[in-house]
């Protein structure tokens, strides 16, 4: 009894701080979860290698910022420009890696309509190759990012400080997610994606280029994943094995919201981020990663279709 009451007291104290941190994490999970959900929509499979897209995005931004920022202290204008550049490079590299993955690990299997098990194994292999390759080429130590801004407290909510980092995540996250949502809902590409997700055969008969749509789906998901990797690595740095845990969590988020469902992925990501953050009051630090997994198992047991339901092809 006293165990819980004391923990709730902690929670009460730090509630707003944890909430802000949780929402920030939630945006990152949401952006990665989008990648899982979109690929799931068109291919009906979990892209196991998505964690490496996340990781390579972080590395790309790391190198760019190292080059741009170095030891200087950028002024406000430079900060914004550098930040946008880092976001773009993270996203672009993420998209390219995702495209490469699709080309190398998936397309040959699609060509001969291989069984699903083959896709999973191929993706796992690609994931292991990629992250160890990056480890080999860029070292296996944590590289700390030169943030292009100083992390000040911008304002406070109920006494909880909100730092620049959170503002950045919020702005980038909202921009990306809204843009993507509109893109999928209204553009020609979006129509193609939704058509393929609903019925690939019919879509191809109606003149949708399946290969191109799938490739673009990977790239869109990869772009968001890469950006998320960069945002994630700002406080903790980039390291070759960094993708595994956040990606597992993001996958849990995608399932929580209803896999195949874009808005579900965002909702799932935010919920998961907040739940995980608040659970700090109850779970010791080493086991915090277990929370997301617990959520995943719970969702799969109770409602495998997620909160908003599996809306394959009717995303957005």
């Amino acid at each position: 009894m006293s165990y819980f009451s004391s923990h709730f007291a902690t929670l009460g104290h730090e509630f707003w701080g944890l909430l802000v941190g949780g929402i920030a994490n939630g945006f990152i999970y949401a952006m990665v979860a989008i990648g899982y959900t979109m690929v799931y929509g068109v291919l009906r499979l979990i892209n196991f290698a998505h964690s490496e897209v996340f990781m390579t995005g972080a590395f790309a931004s790391f190198f760019l910022l190292k080059f741009l920022v170095g030891n200087s202290t950028p002024n406000a204008f430079e900060s914004v420009v550098y930040l946008i550049a880092a976001v773009l490079i993270g996203g672009i590299v993420g998209a390219l890696v995702a495209l490469l993955l699709e080309r190398v690990a998936y397309r040959p299997l699609r060509r001969r309509s291989a069984p699903k098990l083959a896709y999973l194994i191929s993706a796992i292999g690609a994931s292991y190759f990629l992250y160890n390759f990056v480890g080999k080429e860029f070292g296996r130590i944590n590289l700390s990012i030169d943030a292009p801004y100083t992390n000040n407290t911008v304002f406070t909510i109920f006494g909880a400080p909100v730092q620049t980092y959170y503002i950045v995540i919020f702005f980038v996250g909202v921009t990306m997610l809204v843009t993507l949502d509109r893109l999928v809902a209204t553009s020609k590409l979006g129509h193609g994606i939704r058509a393929v997700a609903q019925d690939a055969e019919t879509a191809s008969l109606m003149g949708v280029n399946i290969d191109r749509t799938i490739a673009l789906t990977f790239m869109l998901g990869g772009f968001l994943g890469g950006v998320a990797g960069f945002l994630y690595s700002i406080p903790v740095g980039a390291v070759y094995g960094m993708g595994f845990t956040p990606a597992l969590k993001a996958f849990s988020a995608a399932v929580l919201g209803g896999i195949g469902n874009l808005r579900g992925a965002v909702l799932g990501g935010l919920i998961l981020g907040v739940v995980e953050s608040l659970s700090v009051a109850f779970v010791s630090g080493a086991y915090i990663d277990v929370v997301a997994f617990g959520v995943l198992v719970l969702v799969l047991l109770v409602r495998p279709t997620g909160i908003l339901g599996e809306r394959l092809g009717r995303s957005a």
């Binding site: 690990a105 194994i121 191929s122 292999g125 292991y128």
Partner: peptide
């Protein structure tokens, strides 16, 4: 990892 992809 590379071997897995090549095999598949």
């Amino acid at each position: 990892g590379a071997l897995l992809v090549v095999m598949m």
